[in-house]
């Protein structure tokens, strides 16, 4: 129950605020423009509907990762800088419970983003192929990635104890994770590109979306990539637990 109160406090502090909801408003406006252009613009509207669905799924996943990284960077370092962590640590609550509550709030963030994206996904993917299975994979892999990057960022935040430095490293991680976008199709086919694709959980997710939504491949085909993403999730949770256990004033 203490975890729930920490989570509630975090949600009130970060999400149910004008700044927090501004993120959602901006996300919604971007999705509105994207979906409207996809369906009405002369050339974009003739993209295959699976292609449109795939692009919106990638956008939402990337945004979920970015917001998770930013949220995580402030989680512990922000409390230290604002002088509020000490009072929390004085309370009879373990550091793991504090971290779990904060992670729960980060996941709530992702849940809201996902809920915002649903109407757009339905409208863009209507009548096309693999809409529901695509949404299911977005829910599954998006959640894993939100946990992975939020937990990693929070662990970093508790070790570095500086919001600015945590944010810088988090953005760097985001660029690394998003690197598949910057590589051309030919580059991604090279040994270097394939290694990046293999080890990068975000690349794993977007390749899975491609495979499911555009190529209609079944779960058996995705199992390896999903397993790798799960592995990253467990690794990041371990990193978070280990980092907070060492957290001291």
């Amino acid at each position: 129950m203490k975890i729930a109160y920490i989570m509630q406090k975090e949600i009130r502090e970060s999400i149910l605020t004008p700044k927090g909801f501004l993120w959602y408003a901006i996300t919604s406006m971007i999705l509105s423009v994207l979906s409207y252009l996809f369906l009405t613009n002369s050339e974009l509207s003739l993209l295959d509907q699976g292609q449109m669905l795939y692009m919106i799924m990638n956008f939402i996943t990337a945004l979920g990762i970015l917001i998770g990284l930013v949220f995580g960077a402030d989680a512990f370092a922000g409390e230290i800088e604002r002088g509020t962590l000490e009072a929390l640590l004085l309370s009879p609550i373990t550091k793991t419970e504090i971290a779990t509550g904060k992670l729960g709030a980060a996941l709530t963030n992702w849940g809201i983003l996902f809920a915002i994206s649903l109407p757009y996904l339905f409208v863009v993917g209507k009548g096309g192929q693999n809409l529901f299975v695509g949404i299911a994979y977005l829910a599954l892999l998006g959640t894993f990635l939100a946990i992975t990057f939020s937990a990693f960022s929070m662990g970093l935040s508790s070790r570095i104890k500086s919001v600015k430095n945590s944010l810088i490293i988090s953005f760097f991680i985001f660029l690394l994770a998003g690197s598949p976008i910057f590589l051309s199709a030919a580059q991604r086919g090279t040994w270097f590109g394939r290694i990046i694709d293999f080890i990068n959980p975000f690349a794993g997710a977007i390749n899975t979306f491609d495979s499911v939504v555009i190529d209609s491949q079944g779960f058996g085909y995705q199992a390896g990539r999903v397993a790798i993403i799960c592995g990253y999730t467990l690794l990041s949770l371990w990193f978070l637990k280990r980092s907070v256990s060492r957290l001291e004033m």
């Binding site: 009405t40 863009v124 209507k126 009548g127």
Partner: peptide, 27 residues
């Protein structure tokens, strides 16, 4: 010229408005 294919307008206009209303309420 397709202005409202797949009924995109209600979502493209409606959803930001709903979020804007919630945001205003919070403020």
């Amino acid at each position: 010229l397709r202005l409202n294919p797949n009924n995109v307008l209600p979502v493209a206009v409606g959803e930001p408005m709903i979020i804007g209303v919630i945001l205003t309420f919070i403020v």
